[in-house]
Design a protein around this nucleic acid. Structure first.
Lengths: 256, 256
DNA sequence: AAAAGGCGCTTGTTCAAACAAGTTCACGAA
DNA sequence: TTCGTGAACTTGTTTGAACAAGCGCCTTTT
């Protein structure tokens, strides 16, 4: 059998291995429920030490791709693919990762003073200037989500010189060297207001799935705050947890 | 300063360390935004090698509790506590972990044949017998969630001999030795139907946050399937991701 | 035939060492 | 004063080794 070749990059070995292993699973080379080669075999196959192989396997394990315990080789778990950072942060990236065509129609872009609630969420003073964008997003032409984005001026100002209907804000910002490092996503449900209803073509009061996102840079400053409302029959969120692994997600009560 | 003492158990060292570090953070000994002691100091403090300390830190890192990169000690992240398995799987455990009093009123328990859709989700044949439970859950007396649980007979039958209003089904089942090993949670939004409305005391059509859960045992068999509907102003879900760490959660499109 | 034991396999845990790569800070040159 | 250089320190990567602990299977014993 011809051995697939690891891509030659300058990334660390354990990272290349985890990517390679993940590919073997998505391509069906290692099938769901099947058991992996032993660590010793993987070491020999790639000429690395056991620690490195274990580091790569640990990555897949915490993504939920691998499971199983001591004494026998790990099993390929129920294949709930995990989501890389970019594809969780960017609608455009997400669509592309699904092989679908993202669409966007910008309904508004404005600079205005932040309202009290928004300012509080973003850690600004009420009235501080923010750039706000309202966009309707679609998948393969089907309207799917209404996005209300608020950006701090440093990040938002360059957007006035960007064709918002042409693609990804996330992509544009990263290409400008902005370091979007961390996202915090809060998920709940809301009833469609008049704006949601007219944009998404539904009735007022329809239940929508809402994802509120705060995007931070490396130093913990808020760069962006968004309120994305999905048609719940077109998209939802899935998470897996096991007895061994704490879920990185929590359920939060909102009682005063 | 008196050094806190690690609990003496038979758990592996890296696990004891990660628990100990997590405590230091929740007690405020290590504050949010603050920087940890260097790995070398932690090694010396606990008399272990660097690999072991790094393993403990990696645990907190993947939970999102720690962040920060090469060259400087890790920072205590925005303290979004991660959620252990039990507290994500069980409403009762969750309430207790918040210092709140869980309440439950059982509206129905029945054994009946599974409908086609439910059977499909659980991997059963339509008409296969399942035990179904309908319970209203509350936090500190405030109705918060309506739970529709369906159990395979092996798991559901013991529930007929259990006082469902007295506490946790999850706790009862684990005490019976059932191995609930893995959960898969799907989150979306629904409009309240007549049953939701009357139980939760809201109007029909109100937007509810829905968590559908499939619980598996070690061998991948479905043990339970539930449909929990939260009042969205009382509870929601939060997840964090960073450029380094893939989120264990994914956003899924539902287009045919 | 069934239970018990042991052997070889696997993964889990821990240590020690070395080098690579990024950060911080003080010192010296322009 | 400012800028850059470099030393000291930090975390990241990788190796090699050893032992503990769990699993499967075969053999032996009851």
């Amino acid at each position: 059998m011809l051995k697939d070749v690891l891509p030659i990059t300058d990334e660390p070995m354990h990272q290349r291995l985890s990517i390679f292993f993940r590919e073997r699973i998505t391509t069906g080379d290692w099938k769901e429920g099947q058991s992996l080669p032993s660590e010793a075999e993987l070491c020999a196959e790639h000429g690395v030490s056991r620690g490195t192989v274990r580091q790569a396997l640990a990555t897949l394990r915490r993504e939920g791709t691998l499971m199983g315990g001591q004494g026998k080789p790990p099993l390929v778990a129920h294949a709930v693919p995990s989501q890389p950072f970019a594809s969780f942060m960017s609608f455009t990236e997400w669509a592309h990762s699904l092989g679908k065509e993202p669409g966007q129609k910008t309904l508004e872009i404005a600079r205005r003073g932040a309202e009290a609630e928004l300012a509080g969420r973003m850690g600004l003073q009420p009235g501080d200037s923010v750039v706000q964008i309202l966009r309707l997003r679609s998948l393969d032409g089907v309207p799917t989500m209404l996005e209300r984005g608020s950006f701090v001026p440093e990040v938002g100002n360059p957007l006035f010189n960007f064709d918002l209907d042409s693609g990804s804000i996330f992509g544009h910002l990263t290409s400008l060297g902005m370091d979007l490092a961390r996202g915090r996503h809060t998920i709940d449900a809301v009833s469609a207001d008049a704006l949601d209803a007219s944009a998404l073509g539904i009735e007022i009061g329809t239940a929508l799935l809402r994802e509120q996102r705060l995007t931070y840079d490396q130093d913990g400053r808020v760069l962006e705050c968004s309120d994305d409302r999905y048609l719940p029959h077109l998209a939802n969120f899935v998470i897996e947890n096991t007895r061994q692994t704490r879920a990185a997600m929590i359920r939060i009560p909102l009682v005063a």
